[in-house]
Design a protein around this nucleic acid. Structure first.
Lengths: 210, 210
DNA sequence: GTCTATAACTAGATAGAC
DNA sequence: GTCTATCTAGTTATAGAC
């Protein structure tokens, strides 16, 4: 479905990147409910027909946005995640990610794409595939963290990974409301809590399970 | 904006409830991106003009959905939340809520409304007001829980409330994807973790903070 | 309070000129 | 590879009959 001649006046690669960037902005500012080929094209200053030429459909473009963001984030945070060795450090990386990406609205855009996946099996499949680089990276990090704790045999790695991802996405969903909720304060609090838990874990014997 | 003559062949109250119910189903099955006055009316078997007569606009209806759900849930879970006295018990109530509401898709519908609030200040305001009964209830519960722990002076109640809500909503957002992610397994895991933390807290002196 | 009909507009998608 | 023009269908919202 994707064309592949990089020898016109404009390269396909560059145009595709422009379109993806415009879609990201549209998702961030107008939300999935307000998205359309025309609203995206207006934002990027190109013709709406280009979206269908390069991505086949608006949904195809949304999948491309998810993949692009997943890959970019993976490359950007893999080094930091590789050095995480405590819960507090994991939260610190999450906080850095929040600080750096919140302004740009990239995580907010992702929550919008996820919301849009409801009721569209094709979009669901495409997105969950697109996010694999990122979920794999986070999962591996959590695996390593768990290895040293009393939770080792108690907590399936995938569940904890999902919970961490869910917490993060949920925060973005909620801070989208103009409530008094501040991500800054929330992450500061979570860092304190993480330090306390780290301390408890270090000073405790493996506890009784249920 | 809302009419108020309950003496026709059909009472306004009943019709409004029918419309809200149909909107909830539409949000759950088609998502915010697929919502329209016509898709809602089709589902409920009534005329789309009714939505504008009773709620002024589709957005007005979405706010009504949020309020209705917030009030229903508050009434339903207030008794259980009033008896919560440990983290594990709080997770247990969350699990009951998940079990009971997941099938019905009511939480999924809420995540869709929240996603729709992006880019619509009016919707944002309406929704965050509508949710107040519920957030107040959860906040008070967490307040009580915190009082007995080393986190007492460390954790602003609002932050923890937001984190709990975010986690819950994020889980619904993620389980919407057809991934292998199961809410059942996730909550079972969280119950185990909560028990461990409860145990650690009981056996530990107030720790050093940073 | 609920319906039909309609106005005014926007959507996704494609054909064909350039 | 990008544009204009266009088709078809769906959109919100309102007037006015019942």
């Amino acid at each position: 479905m994707a064309p592949s001649e990089p020898r016109g006046r404009h390269s396909a690669e560059k145009t595709r990147a422009r379109i993806v960037e415009a879609a990201l902005q549209a998702l961030r500012d107008e939300g999935i409910a307000g998205i359309s080929a025309r609203s995206i094209a207006r934002r990027g200053g190109f013709n709406q027909a280009l979206i269908f030429y390069h991505f086949g459909s608006v949904e195809g473009l949304l999948v491309a946005v998810a993949r692009s963001e997943s890959e970019r984030r993976s490359a950007l945070y893999a080094p930091a995640l590789a050095e995480v060795s405590s819960l507090a450090e994991l939260v610190a990386v999450a906080r850095r990610l929040h600080d750096e990406e919140f302004q740009e609205g990239t995580v907010a855009a992702l929550t919008q794409v996820l919301a849009g996946a409801v009721g569209s099996p094709e979009l669901s499949r495409g997105i969950s595939e697109s996010l694999r680089p990122w979920t794999t990276l986070v999962g591996d990090t959590i695996d390593r963290l768990l290895a040293d704790t009393p939770f080792r045999d108690l907590v399936p790695r995938d569940d904890l990974t999902a919970a961490v991802a869910a917490l993060f996405l949920g925060i973005e969903l909620l801070t989208g409301l103009d409530t008094e909720l501040s991500g800054d304060s929330l992450f500061t609090t979570m860092e304190s809590v993480a330090r306390v838990i780290d301390g408890l874990l270090r000073s405790a014997a493996p506890p009784a399970t249920a």
